[in-house]
Write a protein that binds this DNA or RNA. Sequence first.
DNA 1: ACTCTAGTTTAGTTTCGCCTAAATATCATA
DNA 2: TATGATATTTAGGCGAAACTAAACTAGAGT
Lengths: 240, 240
Amino acid sequence: MISTSTGDYLKAIYDLASGEAWVSTSAIAQRLGVAPSSVTSMTQRLADHGYAVYIPYQGVRLTAKGREAALELLRHHRLLELYLERALGYPWDRVHEEAERLEHTISEEFEDRIDAALGHPTEDPHGHPIPPKHGAYREDPVESLWATRAGGPLVVRRVSDRDPEVLRYLDSVGLRPGARITVTGRAPFEGPLTIRSGGAEHVLGERLAEQIFVAPAGGGAGPGKRGPRELALGSEERSP
Amino acid sequence: MISTSTGDYLKAIYDLASGEAWVSTSAIAQRLGVAPSSVTSMTQRLADHGYAVYIPYQGVRLTAKGREAALELLRHHRLLELYLERALGYPWDRVHEEAERLEHTISEEFEDRIDAALGHPTEDPHGHPIPPKHGAYREDPVESLWATRAGGPLVVRRVSDRDPEVLRYLDSVGLRPGARITVTGRAPFEGPLTIRSGGAEHVLGERLAEQIFVAPAGGGAGPGKRGPRELALGSEERSP
DNA sequence: ACTCTAGTTTAGTTTCGCCTAAATATCATA
DNA sequence: TATGATATTTAGGCGAAACTAAACTAGAGT
């Protein structure tokens, strides 16, 4: 099996590449919190093992094999996040950290069983799609609330999962995937923006608005605010 | 946190010491499937870090710190085994392997949540007691069916969890913790023994009988054969 | 075209966990 | 008590994953 570190690099590269760009050494170093030189030697190793193509001074990109490994981990991660929330009652700001470690450790059987227990879900608690076990996968492009220029009503599609503080705040004001919002004001010179959501107004700075991803509302996009669904487990039969 | 390897060594030493004996290099090497020289250097490292006392050519024994770490892992392992069986429907012969990896990875929070979901259980699926989170812990001594000389009716208290084939067989003939049996015959010269259990007779060789641990029946020892209990999860409340 | 800087790579170490081969200690037994 | 078998340790090495410090590219700006 792939090591924890290797997996972390593959995930980071997959994520930073979003699409098909070359990923730079420093971007990976920053994301993973390691020295750039460490990244150089690791990317060389990844290339040696067929997970990536590496061109000095240009960057690195995943091969099909590398992408597959990254998606497997992403699937584990998102299934775990949802499972921790639904089955074990984790609050949504703490699922990321736990999933980050477990994703490298669980077996195929574990993956399959939580997938089944969850009813083969398609999205994690933060609105990210769960890659299917086999077959094609493309994340449909969404715009961050910070960057969007759309005028009409919007739906929150996803929020970034790796900042617990932000998640606690978003939860407290009801900004979860599916929430409907409207931008009611935008201060000049990249200033904070004001939104209306569920009758209340909120002012969001860059750090916050960058982590919220939206799409135009209407057209059956979102089911509205999702309630906390309960999960009854123990329904798998055991071998006699 | 402690590394996976370090944890495996601590568990092995704890297990092999059963009581307060010095554990030999070769015993650990055999248990973990590594070369004896690897064990020597690892035990030196364990001693350096205060997990064990090591005397060359005599062996190794855990310090209080080492024993604590080992028990923490043992608690994780047994809670996980039970959780995998109850909540995810794993058959009892496959829980050990999965728990063996996960025990090193789960957080305190995960431990606490599955403990609560299971209703603070005291025994794993194979009948081993689950060490409490805090406080004293002693495994009450049990005799293997192979070694016992007791004559009357017996109760199966535990079975070893690390041989899937044996577990499948035991399950198929109803020899789970709590089962009542009587030794009806014992072939000479360490030959197989015959037992009666639930109306049927079985002949058990050494390999099998060594992995079954029993106590005299009667005196409220066992609740009889335990049925497969179901577990309803999702009952933990989430933060608002 | 040249220079400067920011970004990258190379070189040299470290720690962990494992290995094989060789040396050495212990213990039982002749 | 000496010897030989068995157990254990030492020596030397390897691969993974990190680090720091030093050398080197590439590209922007003059």
